[in-house]
Every structure is written in structure tokens, then in C-alpha cells.
Amino acid sequence: MQNWIVLSSVALVLWGLTGVTQKLSTNNISFQRSFVWFGVAFFAISVVLAFARPLQWDVAPGVVMLATLGGLLNGLGALTSFAALEAGGKASVVIPLISLYPLVTVAGACLFLGEGLTIRQIAGILCALVAVALLSQESPPQALSSPHKKDL
């Protein structure tokens, strides 16, 4: 099997599992504490990467700011996703829902960066809007069972 397929599959599985570990975290602690520990792990990985890979450190201050802004936006998104799971959203609904964020990226690139929309992207946007509507259709809670609140 080709290397990129293995690596892509590893990314697919690891990212997929984060939805479950996020839910397990917010089943036990607040989203605020969850986020702090999530951030600590990212710092740890950054330190390992900084030592493990040759990096070009002479980065312009503006680019550093831009990269940091990326961390801020992603971090705030991670925070609201932790909060959504703590508020009772199921991992199997919240994660597919928030994964539709390219919808906003594509629309924003069209509006702010002057990029054109392809027919494929328009179809993707329409599918995303339908998916949001369908994923929000939660069944009424049943009195005696709350399967997504299992603590491990």
C-alpha cells in the first residue's frame, strides 16, 4: 500500500477518534477545563516538532501574527465544539455538523478573496445546508435512557 494512503488513513482515524475523546472529556469535566488540557497537548506536540524537524525560524512578524491568528480562530472553534458536546450534543451529530465548516471557508473566499465558485462547490454548499437541517433533527429524549452520557 502506498505511503500516502497509510498516512491519510492515520489522520482520518485519529481525527475521527477526537470526537469521542472530546465527548468523554466533557462527560467528566467542564468544557473550560477540557479546552485547557487540549491546549496543553498542542503545546507538547509543538515542542516535540520544534526539536524533531528542521524548521526555518526566520519568519516575518506579520506571518507569525497570521499563524497565531489561525491558532486563535481554531482554538475558539475547538472551545465552542467542547461546549456543544458539554451542552448535550451527541458526538455523532456535533462532529459531522461542525465538519461542514468548509462551507463558510468557500463562501468567505468567494466574498472576501474574490475566488469564483465552481459548480462542484455550489453543489457542496447546497448539500451542506441540507445536511445541517437534517442533522439538527434530534429525536425527543427518552425518559429512562441517556446512552451518550456514558462515562469511561
Binding site: 506571518v63 497570521l66 480562530l73 465544539s81 456535533v94 461542514l100 465548516y101 463558510v104 471557508t105
Partner: peptide, 27 residues
């Protein structure tokens, strides 16, 4: 419910992050 609105907020924040990624990727 609240989780739905929080999920939509996540979509907006990560969507903006996606835009930022487009700006930073070549630099």
C-alpha cells in the same frame, strides 16, 4: 438546542480559520 447553535458558531470560527489558512499557506 444550545449544542446546535454552538456547533454553528464552530462552523463560522473554523470557516474563518480556513480562510486564514488560505492566506498563510504560501508564506
Amino acid at each position: 438546542p444550545a449544542w446546535f447553535w454552538l456547533s454553528l458558531l464552530t462552523i463560522v470560527l473554523w470557516g474563518a480559520w480556513g480562510l486564514q489558512s488560505k492566506l498563510v499557506v504560501d508564506r
